[in-house]
Simulated assay, not measured.
Amino acid sequence: MVACFTPPSGKEIRSPFPAEIFMPERTLFMSGEISDEIAKVAIKSLLRLQKEDPVSPIFLWINSEGGDVEAGSKIKEAIEKLTPTVSTVAIGQASSMAAFLASSCSGPRLASESTTLMFHGARYMEDIRGPIGETLAIGLELSESTKNQLFAPLARRSGQTVEQLTGLFAEKDQYFDASSAVKHNFLDKVVTPAQGTEKHTAGTKASYKITIEGELQKTQINRIITQIIAGLLLKPQKDISLIFNRTWGGELTDGLALFDLIRLVNSLPACGRILTIAKGSSLNGVSVLIFAAGAERKIGSKTKLVTDPIETLIPAYTPGPAYPLLMAEARVQQVTLIQRFSQCSNQSPEALSFLAQRQLRLSAKKALQSGFADQIV
């Protein structure tokens, strides 16, 4: 999906977001798998923005697991030919081809604090179907032209040589949290919520409500992200309510993308707050973390907050050649998730370390006492 945030004709919009990460009429949000169709839409949008204004920067927000190398390379080549600089803001995840896009652009390279970057190595793993139906992971060697195409722009931005990068990524995929990516010069800055910012008091009624029901899907989370941004642009001084009704599931990286956006918005003085409401019998999985990020968190008297052990939230990878690579990502996510739960409660990361192996199950009263909710309704 590629979303554009263009104001309605004749309507002037003042963005509540910092100018370093967002301009309403100059921002694209690319999410999901990178494909030929996504590349066509993204390139068309980039060229349109250049035609409208060949000087002002363009912002490309990314939450993507990667995808087709050729399609991603077309986007990268288009960016390199543009006259405006293109700044990237990775939120949630930028993996595989998406990581190269996020770290090789012409402008500042930013990421939200929970973002994970994953780079494929000179050899990468690909699943194929075996002769009797089993899935096998095999190592495929990238061609020299593909290596140069991917690594040369990253080498220029990171201050390393192509040989150094291919050596770093020689045998396995590499996972970096946002801070580590900055240390390796793959990103320029981590965007964190403003500390000590006093929020204004918004109206008593939310500008609109977003209801989240059932299993959290990747497309649903990305749609909610675009709805929040669009809502804040149209009515920046009004609150937005996220209503969770028996919600469960969701991938960690996508949930963390929405979590980061909520915390960022709730730290900005020039816009409304994002409020969260938990209804139904229970709230499960990553949706608990998203709920806990709200500026004002209301929970039904009979609603329970339940998270399975973090180890079970991570896909049950089958041991094999690719297993160490997949578990490397899992370990990064595990540490990140415990830290984020700590930020939304009155519990330290050490006190919450049990979440890796044990279930968190809180009644409404316990959620209030533990700092995961503010009010029982």
Rank of each mutant, 00 (worst) to 15 (best):
W61T: 12
E134H: 10
T201N: 09
E311W: 06
I62Q: 12
R48K: 14
K209G: 02
E311C: 08
Q160T: 14
F341H: 07
K76E: 14
G72V: 06
S104I: 08
T83D: 09
C271T: 15
I376G: 01
A78H: 05
P8K: 11
P193Q: 06
T27F: 00
I38C: 11
K298P: 00
M23R: 11
S35I: 05
N63D: 15
K11W: 04
S35N: 09
W248R: 09
K205V: 12
V288P: 00
G196V: 13
Q164T: 13
I221S: 08
G320E: 05
S15Y: 05
Q357A: 14
F169G: 08
I299E: 00
T6A: 04
T336Q: 08
A351H: 07
Q217D: 07
F100H: 14
A278P: 02
A98L: 11
D177R: 13
L60W: 06
A99E: 09
F372A: 02
A328K: 09
V2Y: 07
E350F: 07
A278Y: 02
P57M: 10
C271S: 12
A137S: 15
N222D: 14
R48W: 12
F169H: 12
A98K: 11
A367K: 00
V69K: 11
L136C: 05
E350A: 13
M327T: 15
F176R: 10
I243S: 04
G139R: 06
V265R: 01
F59V: 09
E20M: 02
E25Y: 08
G294Q: 02
R297C: 12
G139F: 04
D177F: 05
G203Y: 06
E113R: 15
S363M: 00
S342E: 05
P18M: 07
A328D: 14
L60Q: 08
F169E: 08
D68V: 00
L101T: 08
S87E: 14
V288S: 01
G92N: 13
A42P: 10
Q237I: 01
A257R: 09
L275P: 00
F244E: 03
E141Q: 13
G255S: 10
F176L: 15
L355P: 01
D188T: 09
D260L: 03
